[in-house]
Nucleic acid binder design. Structure first.
Lengths: 187, 187
DNA sequence: CTGCACATGTAATACGTTACATGATTCC
DNA sequence: GGAATCATGTAACGTATTACATGTGCAG
């Protein structure tokens, strides 16, 4: 589950953290890639603690509920690393790159080989995808050709073409970035 | 609801279409931005027809369930246009740009002024966001500074910085594309 | 004196995914 | 013989969002 990975990953980086603080950090950092509500965070932290992947100290507060400061256990780190090391399952969807990058954000403590393997898988996948995307691009016209409402079709085709062209450029930029990043990890 | 907009939008472009065909088209075109399962599409089409936004003809088939070919009604077009014309509510999240572009894809039949207004709102928002993103960027170090696990911190900061730098470039590319597109619609 | 930040949580609802149900035809 | 495509749908499950519940302290 995505939320579990994010929670374990963030608690690994920020030990002794409360659910409330986690929410703030998620908003400010990870938030751009992933967001979660407190009503979702609290039950997950509880469960992860029950499963032995987190422990918490209770800090008494005045006028508000006691704080629970969570820290990751060795078991938790093992679970996290297991997730980080298993190959990313790419999907033919836009959000895929963001998820891929999100996972990457938590790899700080892994060794160079693991990171290189991860980056290489991304370069391979997105290069392939760019190729299929450019090939299948003819499909846009095919689709609109069958359409009965010809008037709309012309302007729609123009619009879709423009979007597609931007997708190519964005994908190219992403691949370049991955390659550049890989070079900085080269052994 | 997102799925309703996509269904109405696609049926407007492709009149007399079945749920099954819609699924195929969603996979091949919109699919990159938005995907839906048949189990989600069928009930929505049923509901949209009950609400008078769609009508359907039943085409008898042999050996398989009868086809239902849906077409959008005037009421449906009005609903769709209402959605398309109401200002896009930008969220401070990555997926936001994709949703924004998805909506743009269905604007083929709107007039230049509507499209220009939409593009301008995007240019304004993403330019502003790029600025805050670059400013808040200092936050990355602040966050890691408080961290107790110093060893991980260094490599994490390096990694996060790299990701942030890419985000800047990607956002810049997006703004450029929006501006370029706007120019082609300029009156 | 209204609203926000702090701090935890549960409950209800909406939405998305997987599995189930049926069955002919075609391609490997 | 098995998998994929066509064609519709329901049921169960998992995840995400909104609303509810409680209560202090501080700033505008």
């Amino acid at each position: 589950m995505k939320i579990d990975t994010v929670l374990l990953g963030l608690i690994k980086i920020h030990p002794r953290i409360s659910g409330y603080q986690l929410k703030t950090i998620i908003n400010e950092s990870t938030g751009y890639f992933f967001q979660a509500h407190l009503s979702q965070i609290y039950p997950r932290l509880k469960q992860l603690a029950e499963d032995g992947r987190l422990v918490f100290e209770v800090v008494p507060q005045t006028g508000k509920p006691d704080q629970k400061l969570y820290t990751i256990t060795n078991e938790g780190v093992e679970t996290l690393n297991g997730w980080l090391r298993e190959p990313y399952k790419f999907k033919k969807q836009r959000g895929c790159f963001d998820d891929y990058v999100l996972k990457f954000l938590f790899m700080g403590h892994l060794n160079n080989e693991d990171i290189l393997r991860y980056l290489d898988s991304g370069i391979a996948y997105f290069s392939e995808e760019l190729h299929t995307l450019k090939t299948d691009n003819l499909g846009v016209e095919t689709q609109f050709a069958e359409s009965a409402s010809k008037g709309d079709s012309e302007s729609s085709v123009r619009l879709w073409r423009g979007v597609m062209d931007h997708l190519f450029e964005e994908t190219e930029l992403r691949i370049e970035w991955l390659k550049k990043t890989r070079d900085t990890y080269r052994v």
